[in-house]
Design a protein around this nucleic acid. Structure first.
Lengths: 346, 346
DNA sequence: TTCCCTATAGCAAACGTTTCCAGTTAAGAG
DNA sequence: CTCTTAACTGGAAACGTTTGCTATAGGGAA
């Protein structure tokens, strides 16, 4: 058995090529290619013979060579802001399923909330010549954003981001309506001191949530109290430190909204430190029904959006872009789901 | 601006190639390649000039062409049994970080607990000519396993799987020792009716856990009661239905072990149905410290293994394989971490 | 001065496909 | 029977790189 093993005992990547299939079937390279790729100009007999030989030899086409020649990689890049957020796992998963159903693979890269990493990720995906990029950007005003979203490039789908002046599709969640519903609910229950912790204003979700929050107060002829807003970071550390401050405010907040996974982590820790129980001493609402909540914390009121639908929609939009259709924006609804944690506090 | 936009308004993938860089810098193709790839046979002046021109034109090398020519894709495939399990998100993430630090990208594919999917996934990754595959197999005795783990192929790292007769590396967790510790703890506390729900015997973790479980009983001169074992599935449905049965046994179990994410979900639901609280009416231990537990359920006793270390180790092993080193097995320790949930029940 | 060697640069083949174009055959029309 | 056409098949170029080989120039040793 010559050439079977290298000196390290590793099998050699001595894969069978289209050339060997052609030789064994005694036909031209081009005929093998056409027979296997479903090209119409092939006789039934030819197709049958080629397929038999290909199976026999265990031929598996080289996608790298196919990509180089055809200019298409059947690969989508997925740039995620912070893979720590379990929501993204869910989102990426449903997106990958939809892509796979259409014959695409996904390369997932994590920016770790860092703009430089994000820029490198875009560059990497371009070098890999992915057919499309789905991205959850760290911020909407990074200095690299023009370069990465304009210029010569593949179709792009943004997740929950609004960037002006670029030709990209987007999936946006309508956070405003769900938050409006939630805050209205609290106000009707008698809450006035409602605290809100979430990420900074340079991303769409914060703006949309804030819009719903503000409108609920306006609708009730009340004024938002700026010192109850902690708008600055999605990470748990930010939430923890600001929740501590908020809880010691006078008068203390009677309700608190956690905008995202990090906020939920930080706030719940701060509550524990202060011996406050959600739904008793303080009303609590999580913005986003995080996947782990259903396991143990099924009493937490949330503003729900269908994360898996967002992933699927992103896949659909990117496939549309690859087909040459114009970019478009798709909006996913959100709704308030009342559970025990939003009671109490008064 | 000719050629800037297609009729659909999409930017054309009119990327700059090495050829254009060569033309503009007035040097040969090969010189550009060598200058940019760090080849030694290049004068400082040449390198400088080429780099300037490349930057100026915004040249980004085509990784597809590089891969075809060099036979190396700098891509690792990650086949995951069930992406629903949040543990895999953590594992994949730490693995991806380590790979990226070494210049590799990761393609993640999900088998959804289905052997056919798994087989297709392996085939896809081979076609993509990945440099290595890290895999969490659905089962150790699938009919495709020989084909996928032997034959002409790239290096392979198995996650928590033991397959005889194949030349693959593996990262194994020593579940046995942690489970032994946990069960011994329960026995010492006076428990005799200890139930155990986990996946089927055709994967290593079950066997290792069972080994620890059995040995703890043997060490205490006690007999394992087979009807307290539900060894058959990692999914929540299996766990729920079997936990229901177990809880109605006579005598009822005083303690219960949940082997994995699905078991945890199913059992905790069954407990709730029966109005049983962990740490009070029944002692409870989760095998695997699942990532979401620390958010809200920080009172759950667990058998802990460092998931991120497993991911990193898998990356290290696959890189070793690519370097041509012999496959080897790496073992990760586990330990029992006592918290409130493992009290009570007696 | 001559010779050789080193450092550097260029040419061209190759990686494994797809696809354009041209050629062949057979069938159907006139 | 000849011509046209349709249906297929084969040859070869091309995709964008890397890399082995060859060529040249310049410097140092003899």
């Amino acid at each position: 058995m010559p050439n079977e093993k290298s000196e390290h005992g590793r099998s050699v990547n001595q894969r069978v090529t289209i050339r060997e299939v052609a030789a064994k079937a005694d036909v031209a390279l081009s005929s093998v290619s056409r027979a296997l790729s479903g090209h119409p100009d092939v006789s039934d007999e030819m197709r049958k013979r080629v397929k038999e030989v290909a199976d026999e030899l265990g031929y598996e086409p080289n996608l790298v060579a196919q990509s180089l020649r055809s200019g298409v990689t059947r690969t989508i890049g997925f740039v995620v802001r912070d893979i720590n957020n379990p929501m993204f796992a869910l989102l990426a998963r449903s997106c990958e399923q939809e892509l796979r159903r259409n014959g695409y693979s996904m390369i997932l890269v994590n920016s770790d909330r860092n703009i430089e990493n994000e820029n490198r990720n875009f560059s990497l995906l371009r070098r890999r010549r992915v057919d499309g990029i789905i991205a959850s950007l760290v911020s909407e005003d990074s200095p690299y954003i023009k370069k990465n979203l304009s210029g010569p490039r593949c179709p792009i789908v943004l997740l929950d981001r609004e960037v002006k002046g670029v030709n990209a599709s987007a999936v946006l969640a309508d956070h405003a309506s769900g938050v409006h519903e939630a805050v209205t609910h609290l106000i009707k229950a008698g809450h006035r001191e409602i605290a809100f912790v979430t990420g900074s204003n340079n991303v769409y979700p914060t703006r949309s949530r804030l819009e719903g929050f503000t409108k609920a107060f306006e609708d009730a002829n009340l004024k938002v109290q700026p010192d109850l807003l902690a708008i600055g970071g999605f990470d748990a550390d930010y939430a923890l430190s600001h929740a501590r401050i908020l809880l010691h405010r006078n008068p203390a907040p009677t309700a608190i909204l956690a905008g995202g996974h990090g906020a939920l982590m930080g706030i719940s820790r701060a509550l524990k430190e202060n011996n406050l129980t959600m739904g008793k001493e303080i009303a609590f609402i999580a913005l986003d029904q995080l996947p782990y909540l259903e396991v143990f914390s099924d009493n937490i009121s949330t503003v729900y959006r269908d994360t898996e639908a967002i992933g699927r929609e992103a896949a659909i939009l990117i496939l549309e872009g690859i087909e040459g259709e114009k970019p478009r924006v798709s909006v996913i609804e959100s709704e308030f789901i009342e559970r025990a944690s939003s009671q109490g506090g008064l």
